[in-house]
Design a protein around this nucleic acid. Sequence first.
DNA 1: CTGAAAGCGCTTACAG
DNA 2: CTGAAAGCGCTTACAG
Lengths: 345, 345
Amino acid sequence: MTRTKKPPSLKDVSKLIGVSTATISNAFNRPDQLSKSLRERILLECQRIGYSGPSMIARSLRSGQSDVIAVMLSDSLTYSFSDPMATDFMAGITEVLAKANKQLLLLSSTVMSDAQVRAESLPDGFIFYGAPEGQSFNRVTRSGKPCIVVDFDAPDVSSVNIDNFSACKELAEHAIHGERDIPAIMGMRLIADNQVRPIEDKDLDHDKQEISWQRLFGYVAGAKSRGAEIPADNIIHMPVNVLEQAIDGARILLARTQRPNVILCMSDIIAIGACKVADELGLRVPEDLRITGFDDIAEAKRNQPALTTISQQGYEKGQLAATMLLENDTRQVMMEAKLVVRDSA
Amino acid sequence: MTRTKKPPSLKDVSKLIGVSTATISNAFNRPDQLSKSLRERILLECQRIGYSGPSMIARSLRSGQSDVIAVMLSDSLTYSFSDPMATDFMAGITEVLAKANKQLLLLSSTVMSDAQVRAESLPDGFIFYGAPEGQSFNRVTRSGKPCIVVDFDAPDVSSVNIDNFSACKELAEHAIHGERDIPAIMGMRLIADNQVRPIEDKDLDHDKQEISWQRLFGYVAGAKSRGAEIPADNIIHMPVNVLEQAIDGARILLARTQRPNVILCMSDIIAIGACKVADELGLRVPEDLRITGFDDIAEAKRNQPALTTISQQGYEKGQLAATMLLENDTRQVMMEAKLVVRDSA
DNA sequence: CTGAAAGCGCTTACAG
DNA sequence: CTGAAAGCGCTTACAG
């Protein structure tokens, strides 16, 4: 990548027009500092010459402000662009940033290069999405730049989270009708195993903090309030949120003689996989088998049958995080995750 | 947004350690310019002090290189994050950029603010995705910075496009079996009307260049080679690529007495809508009605029935565009769009 | 209303 | 192997 021409600088322009550099700068940044007619002449000349205004680099070196906001994703950018929750969240952020005339730099805490560390010096503020790897969070905190964390907590740092436990409890109470139901759970990243398989009693022992366990405990609490139990054997662990694993997991559950009639899935993708398997086996949803999702991605509504699920409100989360960052709002907000009742349960 | 502390500068560090600023700079950027032991001492001290390396702003002002690449999207960022084709494309780009240690600045040509114009001075290179609005493309061209355009053409500018016509012709030849078939098309952005409605004979007159028309002409050519005609009345225009409009459009077509038995849709979302309506009407896909999509988004495979469609290879397109940019490859590449045969046709 | 001058934090020939 | 000095392109008090 080589540059061919070199664009004119403010200094070049000031010589050409015959006024000081300060005046050119003011023409762009402080219209009140010079006469209207002079300003218009300058702007017109700049257009003619091909000078499109002061460079952001020099400007931000001098003024200490770049008007760039960074989003630091805890997954690789490549993965994040394929994750509907992440892209929803980004969409919400960009709506707010566009209105505030801020630019977006996209970073990933999985990247540890010098180039990335350097890049962190550019933004005026940071939004961390998901608990980051490595030292990026520490560096940002140390820099004193404003920072909002989302989907995790850090002491004394502004944050946005959703209440997974309550939402899952409510969903389970909706989907499970009574003690004669046989509920099951299809969960993600519950244990450290890259096999799709049921978890074991001992896995349930500990008091885990991860989001997936908050959801699981919510399901179990909801089942309990309906008089139903969910044994470890009816809780399937999936390492990754993809259709193929969901299909494998659903086959395990639906091959049982004690076949579950309610499956609580920790993502919409998983629920879509469960629906596929139900269809294969000739089970009607929701008549023979009730299935619930989580996330409320766009596809949830398009699925046949449309999924009953929990809306994570990724878009709103993004809007809120960006607004809080720009307004120096230092709260730690817990958003509600909303039950969305459709056809599948 | 106010900063609290001020991070140490290279100068501060050089005083603290007692070597010149040049040596600190070299410790980070040119390891061969100083002894290994000194370099290690400097790096260790920097870590202790909390200096995370030279600031990108000052560095790029001085060296003229930022290691930032901009992607200029022709839609708003908010829209783009909800568009599976755009996010696939971005995923491909970020994979290449991550490997090359480049950072990503996301811009939209729909934004015309001074802040955005300024931001354009930062990146070392640009990828334009979709024909841009406004002057951004002219400014970038004038700057002489490397630039790749995708999904449109500009004279003497490196580009990546896909062959819409050929792909659609092949798809139509696959889906239409003979002259007794009644094919229809559900297309996007064919005419300037925000109603979902059939187009008219006069709309077919002109020799249009837009992507949607290249696709349409491909369908018509494919139909012709199977001996079938597609009258204007069987070509539905939809202003936007959303499920609701697809459902409206499919209802128009499938309510006809001369009911089409092949529907060629210009996106997978439209095809999914058509499948929904077919299901409502008790029509079996593909037995009673063959439906094809376009794009091959992830959902195409998950749909019931899985969609026969055209893969736009968004990910590969992104990889190629980014690679070409970084390698100063000045070709104008036409990629093949691939027919993907599944269950719906 | 306008301009001369300092300085933001670096990198890079160049001298030693 | 190391350091003194210039300069990247701006903004901003300040003087006039």
